[in-house]
Design a protein around this nucleic acid. Sequence first.
DNA 1: CGTACCCTTGATTAATCTCAAACGTAGTGG
DNA 2: CCACTACGTTTGAGATTAATCAAGGGTACG
Lengths: 255, 255
Amino acid sequence: MATPAPHPHPTRPDEAEAPARVTCGHHGCETICADCAVRSLSVCSALEPGELAHFARLSQSIHYPARATLIAQDEPAQHIYNLTAGVVRLYRLLADGRRQIVGFALPGDFLGLAMAKTNTFSADAVGPVAACRFTREGFGQYLEEKPHLLRRLHELATHELTLAQDQMVLLGRRTAEEKVAAFLIATRDRWARINGAHLHVPLPMSRQDIGDFLGLTVETVSRMMTRLARDKIIVIVPDGVRILDEARLEALCAV
Amino acid sequence: MATPAPHPHPTRPDEAEAPARVTCGHHGCETICADCAVRSLSVCSALEPGELAHFARLSQSIHYPARATLIAQDEPAQHIYNLTAGVVRLYRLLADGRRQIVGFALPGDFLGLAMAKTNTFSADAVGPVAACRFTREGFGQYLEEKPHLLRRLHELATHELTLAQDQMVLLGRRTAEEKVAAFLIATRDRWARINGAHLHVPLPMSRQDIGDFLGLTVETVSRMMTRLARDKIIVIVPDGVRILDEARLEALCAV
DNA sequence: CGTACCCTTGATTAATCTCAAACGTAGTGG
DNA sequence: CCACTACGTTTGAGATTAATCAAGGGTACG
């Protein structure tokens, strides 16, 4: 279990603030959304083509460098984001520096579902990231007029809640090996929705990040990865892992 | 960490099925809702007095004995509930019997926020329970006409999500002692919303339940309770604990 | 009054963390 | 272009937390 000893995490919410580069201001031209690779996965799928044009005008297409902070815990929530490329880690910090990553956002994911005035977690870019950014106010006003968008938001929120419950089972009742196996399977499945099914699972986040997500130390994550590789269940490749034996990996998850 | 050894849990979703006793069929008389102690805390707070009468007609006031199953994981979701008295545990089981309690529902809490066709968790009564029960279909139809009710539901869902993230921090990054301390503080605060602030914290659930919620064994929960009592931070009383030193207990939570 | 269940306590074991060090890779600057 | 540095990863040895195994005590209920 975690000890009170502080983690020396490089990424505190105050550092590495985003020198956010705005690509095109409002992206009023509908073609941008029309071309969006993740539209069918995101909130936008709730909108008609006509609505989409109006909706797009509320947002900015924006790029962030690695480690940029999109959301800072306990700060006023100014923006909400629809992630279009890259990976974002969502986390909470304890006073002594212990960190729990509560999720990784992948392309198509929505940040700020709660529409709350104050952020309940921090979020920063694992690598370079692209997103559609809305002001909370602007999005909120649009939401007033569009009950079906609210319904979609609620759908996404309850899906998140189910994922959170999955994670509670993992954190509370699985062994280190099961945690890592379940993480790889879940990550494979999430990428599959975006890119289609592959045996290659991209892991742009560090071992430390994975550990802070699974309630483990870096060393334990590394050891379990090594063990899975030794047992010929996966191969560790530069930017992630390749699954060699799906059946055995799934069996290790102990669903 | 949890081991693969099966828990011999007495409460499987198939046993102890509710011989649900319906008190008054539809409780069409508005006075029942008007008198409801938890109305201001529940979904119902989103409704006008006139709407409430119609809403009430959709529901049944219903009582369950201890250990009755309200919701069974992976079964079709037929009902949703608004808990009015008693405590319900929400949980998931792994194939080998390991259990993770994902939450305790207290009076005023809503079960079935997701409005999903299939249940993603099981829920059973810790002790005798009273609830307003709706059919999922009936509630869903009413929801179509009432965007402000949907907004309230979304508010509740995102609040649940925040609680789930709190719990992830607890499960992943807190020590056994911190877990128990944080559980007592959180439970105190939840009862405070219902009954007002007290140093007495009711704990109707068993030590096993608490362990399955905190990712600990019964023995560890018991030992930590004993330790807190030895240190004069709490006293263990028949149906829960009494907090003697709020400041020290809060300090142990490591927020 | 007995039985069952829950809670507590003790002794031991096992899983994971901590501490330490070596390794690899990527980026930097001479 | 290469050496150097910084950072992330891996591996090993030992410490520590919490789990497991085992047993005793209390309480409620039949």
